[in-house]
């Protein structure tokens, strides 16, 4: 299947993060992805938007290739909780991504807003943040703001020796 990455736009700050915005294999909603891309770019970050229905292998491969500072998973079709548990396990299994800040948000189940138990399960499975509906965007912005500056700092901690 053809790869489908969306070109990055706007002026990123030198200290901006490299961010991957993506959904998961079963979910075709994309307005959420377009919104998150714009929001992050406005905050000065560089975004790669992987588009609709991203298969697990492609998602992991793109994250390994780009080695982003932040991975943002968004799902609203109601399968996000289960798909998210599966995907974060695959991401964390990659040595390059073991410590990459990774968050999930949207409408993650089929019966309305999230429960604390669901949030705990996702955090335990390896997510660093869970942003289900209701004020989630503001919380997300403070989370992103609290991350160390991108590029240089990440490259150093990742020990790759390549300063982007």
């Amino acid at each position: 299947m053809e790869q489908h990455a969306v070109e990055q736009h706007g002026k990123a700050e030198p200290t901006g993060l490299d961010v991957i915005v993506t959904t998961m294999a079963s979910d075709s909603h994309t307005w959420n992805l377009v919104f998150l891309q714009l929001l992050l770019e406005e905050l000065g970050h560089r975004v790669t938007n992987l588009g609709a229905c991203v298969p697990d292998e492609l998602l992991v491969a793109e994250c390994c290739r780009i080695e982003p500072d932040l991975i943002v998973l968004s799902s609203v079709n109601g399968h996000g909780f289960h798909d998210g548990l599966r995907v974060v396990e695959a991401l964390r299994a990659c040595p390059e991504l073991a410590g990459t800040p990774t968050v999930i948000g949207g409408k993650l189940g089929i019966s309305g807003s999230g429960t604390p138990a669901r949030q705990r399960a996702l955090l335990t499975a390896g997510f660093d943040g869970v942003f289900e509906e209701g004020g989630s965007v503001l919380d997300f912005q403070s989370f992103v703001g609290s991350l160390p500056a991108g590029s240089g700092s990440r490259a150093l901690t990742a020990g790759s020796g390549v300063l982007l």
Partner: peptide, 12 residues
């Protein structure tokens, strides 16, 4: 930190 603008072209 960047001006608001229209979402640019989405060339793959």
């Amino acid at each position: 930190s960047t001006p608001r603008r229209e979402l640019g072209p989405t060339t793959p």
